[in-house]
Design a protein around this nucleic acid. Structure first.
Length: 579
DNA sequence: GCCGTTTTCGGCCCGACTGTTTTCAGTCG
């Protein structure tokens, strides 16, 4: 039983409780617990009841449920709920514009218990005209269904961000908007995002709105009001667009950047101080009654910038990547926010491939690309793997590889080039190259590429054995996940980090957006254990050298500072650390 | 279900847009 499974159970319970019409605050408690457990860097199963109850949002009942699940593998109440609510209905809930009320109605009145049932019902045309269901609503369901099928769930950050930046660019050059910013989970740098949020100020809101909805990237308009539009891009992802007044821009940016959980915490704090926060600003309220009665006998205290808004509610500015209600508000209140890493601190890239193995370009091209980025050093780490690869470093070609790297270093000049390898960790934790060969290399990244479905104990033991090899400097993409394609390996991450600390092994945060591995939670755990990180691109092409930004944003989400990352060190200090 | 320098009971963040209604419920973020 792991955090993810427990989080999923709580989340499913929240959905089911909502469908059966439970008190929404109880539903919320389950949702919040799901988020908290998922974000926890520690394995909640190993925690005592007392420790669990110290976690905000986990009380008497939920801590018992966590303990029950870690002991028995199931949650009785969840099983009972499953008997009440058909499981397939939970997926129906994922369809845009179908919420708990509609799902319940579809189920009780029209016997829909699955996506297939929904599809069938929509195709019969029985729904139109039924009480509460007009033509438009049904059309919305159909569209929602279509989007859901073509486009299940969230898209990777590295795929969505460039799309959003193109739109931002168009809006900025249109001269119709003054401020243009990305908000939402994209601004927070989540590894996957559900949609794009764009926020602008404009003196001509109507014109800005009209300009936006006809951008070439836009396939379909879902909503268009005075201040808000929602469209679907040709790539399938939804994009929300909001126009706000300049004096409210900061408040709106803060509000729409989220996360929802962070907002709830911040607002709750504000309410205690006699303030109310919405997307228009921070306001003083005379009494709680005045909020309830919506009588705005209010005085605006802040709104123009995020700094101003946060200051008004008693907080310093908190970087967007931290706004997940993972302790950032508490840290901010006592002045303990981390000084987050920035891309400009990176002085080298310690994982990349050339056409010696499966990269597309020459060693020289890759090194030159790094030099152009202003790096002081770079490690060429071509594969050393049995993985059906004709190319790559073999036992008998190590010397030749090193000679070639030295020649490239000399030829390019002005950048230190390490002769490295990304060596395969075999099924049993041994390495593809002999110690004698590994000893010759400047930088050894060890990664798992095969047997990725091992059970937790076996996989953890395998990885730790690799770390114990004195010639391994770094573990590459620890869980070997591939976003949207391959699940992460099942590893005991606390044991892994302990071993990394003990053996002095660097843990890579692989910056390629398909990997982002370590993820934000694992990287934060590494920091807690005092493990040194490397943030490197795993680039296979020159273009991929620019993946660094995704690694940085993920590191920031993990509260990582410059001092936690080895490749922020100047060359001389880096060298000292390595040998 | 959680939580308490207002409370162990009674609160729990707040508003836009849509669609189907004639004043509002549902959904979403």
């Amino acid at each position: 039983m792991d955090n993810i499974t427990i989080a999923k159970t709580f989340s499913a319970m929240a959905d089911m409780l909502e469908i059966v019409g439970e008190n929404r605050f109880r539903v919320n408690a389950y949702r919040r617990a799901a988020e908290t457990v998922e974000a926890s860097t520690h394995d909640v199963c190993t925690r005592s009841k007392k420790q669990l109850m110290e976690i905000p949002g986990i009380g008497e009942d939920l801590s018992d449920k966590i303990i029950e699940m870690s002991k028995t593998g199931v949650c009785k109440e969840c099983e009972q709920l499953k008997k009440k609510v058909p499981e397939g209905l939970l997926e129906v809930l994922r369809v845009e514009s179908i919420g708990p009320k509609t799902a319940r109605l579809l189920w009780k009145k029209f016997r829909v218990v699955s996506m297939m049932g929904l599809e069938r019902l929509l195709s019969t045309g029985k729904l139109e005209g039924a009480r509460g269901f007009g033509v438009k609503k049904v059309a919305n369901f159909k569209r929602g269904l279509e989007i859901h099928e073509r486009f299940r769930g969230r898209q990777p950050l590295g795929y969505v961000l460039p799309l959003a930046e193109k739109i931002i660019q168009a809006l900025r050059t249109s001269k119709l908007c003054e401020e243009v910013e990305i908000a939402g989970s994209l601004r927070r740098g989540k590894e996957t995002v559900g949609d794009i949020d764009i926020l602008v100020t404009s003196r001509e809101p109507q014109k800005a709105m009209d300009f936006f909805v006809v951008l070439p990237q836009i396939k379909m308009i879902e909503q268009k009001g005075e201040t808000k539009a929602r469209v679907i891009l040709t790539s399938g992802i939804a994009c929300d667009f909001r126009v706000v007044a300049p004096e409210a821009f900061g408040a709106a940016l803060y509000y729409f950047t989220g996360s929802k959980e962070h907002n709830v915490q911040a607002r709750t704090m504000a309410v205690k101080n006699g303030l109310t926060v919405n997307e228009y600003g921070v306001f003083k309220v005379q009494s709680r009654k005045s909020i309830k009665s919506k009588v705005k006998n209010v005085e605006r205290v802040a709104g123009k910038t995020e700094e101003e808004v946060m200051r008004a509610i008693g907080l310093p500015w908190i970087p967007p990547e931290l706004r997940e209600d993972r302790g950032e508000i508490e840290a901010a209140l006592v002045g303990k926010l981390p000084k987050l890493i920035e891309e400009k601190y990176i002085r080298g890239n310690l994982h990349m491939h050339s056409n010696w193995s499966d990269g597309e370009e020459t060693m020289e091209a890759m090194v030159r690309a790094s030099k152009r980025k202003g790096y002081e050093y770079v490690a060429l780490t071509d594969h050393a793997s049995s993985m059906g690869m004709v190319k790559g470093t073999k036992e008998h070609t190590v010397d030749r590889y090193i000679r070639m790297v030295r020649a490239v270093e000399k030829k390019v000049g002005g950048i230190h080039v390490l002769a490295g390898a990304e060596v395969d960790i075999e099924k049993d934790g041994s390495l593809y190259l002999s110690d004698k060969s590994l000893a010759k290399l400047d930088f050894v990244v060890a990664s798992m590429h095969l047997y990725l479905k091992q059970d937790r104990a076996t996989a953890t033991k395998r990885l730790i054995r690799a770390m114990e090899n004195p010639y391994v400097d770094c573990i590459g993409h620890c869980t070997s996940r591939s976003l949207g394609k391959r699940e992460p390996m099942d590893l005991d991450m606390e044991a892994v980090m302990k071993a990394a600390k003990r053996t002095g092994t660097i843990m890579e945060l692989n910056a390629h957006w398909v990997r982002l591995d370590l993820n934000d939670i694992h990287a934060r755990l590494a920091k807690e254990y005092g493990v040194t990180l490397s943030i490197s691109t795993d680039a296979h092409t020159v273009v991929e050298s620019s993946m660094m930004r995704y690694g940085i944003v993920t590191a920031r989400r993990a509260w990582i500072e410059k001092k936690n990352v080895i490749n922020t060190l100047p060359w001389k200090e880096f060298q000292k650390m390595l040998y």
